[in-house]
Design a protein around this nucleic acid. Structure first.
Lengths: 220, 220
DNA sequence: AATTGTGAACCTCTTCACAGCT
DNA sequence: AGCTGTGAAGAGGTTCACAATT
């Protein structure tokens, strides 16, 4: 108990935290101040037993016969996810996808902000494009420190993925969201998530054809 | 054995199939015709024991003391993923994200093609935008049948997510890739995957701060 | 000599079902 | 009376380690 509870949070639970917090914020905006695990299950599509188990890792957050206090849950989850602290994000690769991500601006999460964008294309570098000044990729390390970047999103083509990831790692950033499909080598202290549209589509079609009535679990 | 092996493929294995196929195609393009599980593990970053276990679900694909035949593996995996059959894809919501996805055109997978796009914005409907004629969302059902659509990608804002997904389901499509963050109700025969950038970023930051040296597993 | 395919152990996560609390 | 928190069982996936095979 004196060891921080979050140190033993199962990963599966951790991945659901953003989903929980988002739905709690919606509930609070609607004026709901109290929620039971069964009700929350209907909203989130997560089974109520899983919700109670997940919440229990963070302490005894609820009250028997009553449910959970929404503002209190929000307080706990917000602190845990640092959702009230500004996070500076960089994008490397400012083509169509990079620009679409930059413009997306993370509705309902004004703590996440794109602070700088990079490309290696001389036609883009030094110009202002859709509101973003495009830096040369060689400025990455300097800007990461200057803007205190927490996460880098890379959208560069697979061919350059490894070399760009190496530069990101060298800049000191340890959290990378990678839209290229090729697996790359990273030091073990670096966290990377891949989002690959082609893989998603192939997986989806495969499950659709082979797992009818046993749907694919949809967790992000 | 007379029951199709793929009927009992673990889901975790199924999700790795696109990764395997992609890397096998790269190997073949490089002229590699034979691969050992240990070598393939280095390329894919999947442990060799997991690779052998995965492959074993599809039959005895390899040879002891030899390894696996790359062209044969490609044949098996391609057939399983139907990666040689054209798949028709529709996009609903043709804003920045929808357009970026449409232009992305799935390098190395010319069997996946965007066949039609939809929006409800009168400023877009009926116009040709970046090479795509924008249909009214009310034409969805008709076009799904006409173009034999296998998968629908939706990028509409959360507020409209449920109503649009209902229309997609009504059109008969059972595979949906959803870029909106809110969980929606779907019949149990429909497969849906969510991709939500905000969730990905929050998850990544959380893991980065709490699971140092025990990196997040990165599977798509 | 070297690698596959797999039984068995292990680990992680989910779900059941109910004691205990309010 | 009703809901939480959790022990225990179950389900699913990974990894070990080696017999079988070429």
């Amino acid at each position: 108990m004196e060891e921080s509870a979050k140190d033993k949070l199962p990963r599966a639970t951790a991945k659901r935290l953003p989903l929980y917090l988002r739905n709690l914020n919606i509930l609070e905006a609607e004026g709901v101040i109290r929620i039971k695990s069964r009700e929350f299950a209907e909203i989130t599509k997560i089974p109520s037993a899983t919700i109670r188990r997940d919440f229990s890792y963070l302490g005894e957050l609820g009250r028997s016969g009553y449910g959970y206090d929404v503002p209190y849950l929000i307080e706990v989850f917000t602190a845990l996810l640092e959702a009230n602290e500004k996070k500076s994000i960089a994008i490397v690769g400012f083509g169509n996808l990079g620009r679409a991500i930059a413009k997306n601006n993370f509705r309902r999460n004004d703590n996440l902000a794109i602070s700088c964008v990079f490309d290696n294309n001389p036609a883009l570098v030094g110009k202002e494009i859709t509101g973003f000044y495009v830096y040369d990729i060689r400025d990455l390390k300097r800007m990461v420190q200057e803007k205190n970047v927490s996460v880098v999103i890379t959208t560069v083509p697979s061919e350059n993925s490894q070399i760009v990831v190496d530069e990101i790692v060298a800049s000191g950033v340890t959290a990378i969201l990678n839209f290229s499909s090729d697996r790359v080598d990273i030091p073990k202290n670096v966290n990377m998530r891949y989002i690959d549209l082609t893989t998603e589509l192939l997986t989806l079609v495969f499950f659709d054809h082979h797992y009818k009535n046993r749907p694919l679990v949809v967790t992000t």
